[in-house]
Design a protein around this nucleic acid. Structure first.
Lengths: 195, 195
DNA sequence: AAAGGTTGTTACCCTCTGGTAACCCTATGA
DNA sequence: TCATAGGGTTACCAGAGGGTAACAACCTTT
């Protein structure tokens, strides 16, 4: 039905389409036929570009994770002081959620299904995001504790996002980022003081 | 192999055993045969007590969720002022994580798989937990915003817990609860001020 | 000790779906 | 125009796993 495409273009199209399908239905509830249908193509075509369902799924996770990581990292690096870093970081996170909607659902939505390997991938991505913001936290507490709190901040952003996204509410990422950052920054300073 | 049990006892045993199996492997990677084996029994026995795999799984979620909710609610209610409520709430949460380990993994672990209905159940539980702590947040911001931040706090606790549990680190729930509560409380007060 | 309800098992069905072998169609270039 | 290569399809396999019908072992009650 759909036109013939050169291999690289087809591969891209499959990635584009399948991120939507997987995001909406989750891994297990999405069959390769579903993906193929959505792409306007038949199953074997998928296997010309990806070794397995897992392989396709992991490619999607990897891409989505990269976009998240780089967005947050860039934002944090580009800011001057801690407070600004916090604000920019959260803003970037929420902007990513708002713009890269399907990717958010894929990585962190409630329907995100995680087998052995996907779990590892997602955990790695989350951990790296946390690592990017860990320096925001006062270094005079143990590094373990520091990383734990960084994961907490990621969880904070995640919880807020999931709540909003799953209720279908629209939001201004910059405003939200600022508000959450205010809260987080005050919290971080408290940690600093209390050691 | 295992002894004959009266129906209610068998039902309880199945619940006890399957929460472990599901927590460890997730919904889709766990077959009813796996559950049956773990219970020392054969498949049809499971279907004498539960209508379907879904049904069993939802029963587990419900039980786990109840324990979480009541633990947090009780803790929050029993405290006097806001700061103490925050501390008691987080303590109760982390105590639940430490004690009801499998339940935590089942509800919120990375392998937690969520189809249509399970998603709804888990979201309900999380939302109710958030509702229990929403009053901690100053009422002079919009109720929508208030609920969003409450979800953020739940996410915070979740992120911290997941990080610790999945790294297999042991932790003192009371100490951790206090530390996280310090951070959260300072954040909440900041929200209060900035409106 | 026979009856009847309860607990449990064996053996099976059936669907779903990941994956593949074999073939077809279309464009291009010599 | 004919060969060739690469994109695409049809038709199928095979295994896994949810769910069930029929049967067997047990215990209790009379």
């Amino acid at each position: 039905m759909s036109m013939r495409l050169p291999a690289p273009a087809r591969r891209e199209q499959i990635l584009d389409v399948s991120v939507q399908v997987f995001a909406r239905n989750g891994f297990h509830s999405t069959s390769m036929n579903d993906v193929a249908d959505a792409a306007g193509v038949t199953k074997p075509v998928l296997y010309q570009h990806f070794d397995s369902k897992q392989d396709l799924y992991l490619a999607l996770l990897e891409e989505a994770g990269n976009r998240l990581r780089t967005a947050v990292s860039k934002a944090v690096v580009s800011a001057a002081n801690g407070k600004e870093q916090t604000e920019m970081g959260f803003r970037a996170y929420f902007r990513w959620v708002a713009e890269d909607h399907d990717a958010f659902l894929l990585l962190l939505g409630s329907r995100a299904t995680r087998d052995e390997e996907s779990t590892a991938t997602i955990r790695r991505i989350t951990a790296e995001t946390a690592k990017a913001i860990a320096p925001l936290i006062a270094a005079d507490i143990g590094p373990e504790h520091q990383r734990t709190l960084a994961q907490g901040l990621v969880g904070l952003a995640e919880g807020v996002s999931r709540h909003l996204v799953e209720r279908g509410e629209t939001f201004d990422p910059d405003l939200l980022g600022q508000q959450v950052a205010d809260m987080a920054w005050a919290g971080l300073r408290a940690v600093h003081r209390s050691g």
